[in-house]
């Protein structure tokens, strides 16, 4: 009996020592996974996921505090890529979230009163203008987050869907007449 206890105690001590050493030797400071998740997120900074921006959401995912299906701008595709990175099963977008076609905000120049509220709301500084001056949204920089819509006191901002042109046109998925393809 005594030997058994001794043996187990000795073993425990030895193994504990090895593990202690290893935890010092192989310490990991930062979690580079956050960067990888952040790179997949579309960076609209729209906050629809319930986090104040893409980076906080990425951090929450990496800590396991948030699900991977909370990002509507990323769409099913983004969820799929997150799932691939994290080695989990992809799932449909979360409840109440839906993927919309890419659009940009446009200011109706006849209505804008130059109040600067939208400028302060824009997370990517895509709105230019100054107090009592007409504001303009730089379409190339607008992420379509819609955060500027509600602060506007005169409701002069609306979203416009970006249509494809010759430069952004993509070849469509080839259509089979008879062979049914996997639904997506």
């Amino acid at each position: 009996m005594l030997t058994a206890i001794l043996v187990m105690a000795l073993g425990g001590l030895l193994l504990g020592g090895v593990l202690g050493w290893a935890s010092v030797r192989y310490r990991v400071e930062d979690d580079p996974l956050v960067e990888k998740i952040d790179a997949i997120l579309p960076q609209t900074q729209c906050g629809q996921c319930g986090f104040p921006g893409c980076k906080p959401y990425a951090e929450a995912i990496s800590k396991g505090e948030a699900d991977i299906n909370r990002c509507p701008p990323g769409g099913e595709d983004g969820v799929k890529r997150l799932a691939e990175l994290l080695g989990v099963d992809p799932k449909p977008l979360g409840e109440g979230l839906e993927h919309k076609p890419k659009s940009v905000a446009v200011i109706d120049e006849n209505l804008c009163i130059g109040c600067t509220l939208c400028i302060q709301a824009c997370p990517v500084d895509a709105i230019v203008g100054a107090a009592k001056q007409m504001h303009v949204i730089v379409a190339d920089q607008c992420t379509g987050c819609e955060l500027c819509l509600s602060p506007c006191p005169v409701e002069c901002i609306h979203m416009e869907v970006v249509h494809e042109d010759v430069a952004t046109w993509k070849w469509r998925y080839p259509v089979y007449t008879l062979h049914p393809t996997r639904p997506h």
Partner: peptide
């Protein structure tokens, strides 16, 4: 999105 991220960080 990379550009948006940089702009957001600057913001």
């Amino acid at each position: 999105s990379e550009q948006a991220r940089r702009r957001h960080e600057f913001h």
